[in-house]
Design a protein around this nucleic acid. Structure first.
Ligand SMILES: [Mn+2]
Ligand SMILES: [Mn+2]
Ligand SMILES: [Zn+2]
Ligand SMILES: [Zn+2]
Lengths: 162, 162
DNA sequence: CGGATAGCTGCAACTGCGTTGCATGTGCTT
DNA sequence: AAGCACATGCAACGCAGTTGCAGCTATCCG
């Protein structure tokens, strides 16, 4: 377990630790879920809260670790994540090691987006940056989303700081 | 095998068909390979030529089909592709179905790039479009490549044409 | 409230893409 | 032509993600 994983794990446990837990946030997540017409099950609430608290896109494995004692069945977690993506509450993308990474959708969702993708650890960061101009497409192509994808090494992987 | 696969397959077979084959192109590919200091084996030459001829990024499976009679061992093809990527002659990216897709590197390689990614079939198309402005990054992040990533449906998947 | 039910969850088996280990073959140098 | 490092083929494996099905439960209704 690398340093980053330890820190991330600690952060997640803080989020889900009952002694630090805020029922208000849990209820907010439950509301977002019920608004879609589906059941607000503990599994969905926990995972959605974890995604909201995460500083970067997480893998299935990350989330499994982060849930700790509140662990779900492996397949259930996959299905919860699938449902979150289908319902628009989360995004899924694939990292360089061909593993899915999940992140909470912003509340006022945007069609254009800027991400930084670390070529070393594979993490994805959402950046607040102006969406670029949509260019002209070949005939027959329809555009649904425009994304500026920056690649390089993240702060932790550069090793320069902490 | 969908319509697109049939057409692509036909295109590839044309490229590799001895009766239409140009030895000059084969020798050019061999030169590119030898220039890296490695051996110009038939496997590498064939695969590199196929990638050069392809209109979009191909999967391992696509290439296996495209090679037809000149088929390689499954693992050998993976290793050839790995080598092409390491040596800078090809690029690898991962599609939405978490499958690797390979494309030949442009001769005068570029740091900024624009791709269109079909959310239906997962194919990737290289577009000639102006690179966007590099935005400001958080502290400690180093940028190695900037990529404008357009998503939607390709012409064939829209079904509108042909 | 308590019971019924559609919809979740858990478990086990499975798939497909990619990897590793090792024996055999071959492009390139001399 | 010979030798060797490098490349290939084959078999077994690993891991992320999927599917089928039986049992559980959040929500709806009376
Ligand atoms: Mn984002
Ligand atoms: Mn490209
Ligand atoms: Zn990193
Ligand atoms: Zn398509």
């Amino acid at each position: 377990m690398c340093l980053w994983a330890v820190l991330k794990f600690a952060a997640m446990m803080t989020v889900l630790n009952p002694s630090v837990d805020s029922p208000a946030e849990a209820e907010a997540a439950a509301l977002l879920i019920r608004r879609t017409g589906a059941r607000a099950t503990p599994a969905r609430v926990r995972v959605l809260r974890l995604l909201h608290a995460a500083p970067a896109a997480l893998t299935h494995h990350d989330i499994e670790q982060g849930l700790g004692d509140l662990a779900l069945d492996r397949v259930t977690l996959y299905r919860v994540l699938d449902w979150l993506v289908e319902s628009g509450l989360a995004h899924r993308n694939t990292d360089a090691q061909r593993v899915f990474r999940f992140s909470a959708a912003a509340i006022g969702e945007h069609a254009a987006h800027t991400h930084f993708r670390c070529e070393d650890c594979g993490r994805v960061f959402c950046l607040e940056a102006a969406p670029p101009e949509p260019p002209r497409l070949p005939d027959g192509f329809s555009l649904s989303r425009i994304e500026l994808d920056l690649r390089g090494r993240c702060a932790r992987c550069t090793g320069g700081n902490r």
